[in-house]
């Protein structure tokens, strides 16, 4: 149906992942902020995970667009 859904998913998670990771980097020295997450800079770690997921989806959309739709 016209739009490959991997584009919006990929773009959104790349954006949100980058936002979280950058926020995590900037606030990394603020230990009080990360008391709730047991001292782990969860924003940086999870932002990176989302970023990888988002970029993976985008790569899938790009390679999918090059090939003719299968089956």
């Amino acid at each position: 149906m016209g739009l490959d859904i991997r584009w919006p998913i990929g773009l959104m998670f790349t954006l949100i992942g980058a936002l979280l990771a950058i926020y995590g980097l900037v606030t990394g020295s603020n230990t009080a902020l990360y008391q709730s997450s047991l001292g782990i800079n969860i924003n940086l770690i999870w932002g990176a995970v989302l970023l990888v997921f988002g970029v993976g989806m985008l790569l899938g959309a790009i390679t999918g667009a090059k090939k003719p739709p299968g089956k």
């Binding site: 995590g24 709730s36 997450s37």
Partner: peptide, 11 residues
């Protein structure tokens, strides 16, 4: 509320 710092909370 207990575990999420700002950022993760938004997510």
């Amino acid at each position: 509320k207990k575990y999420c710092p700002p950022g993760l909370l938004g997510l």
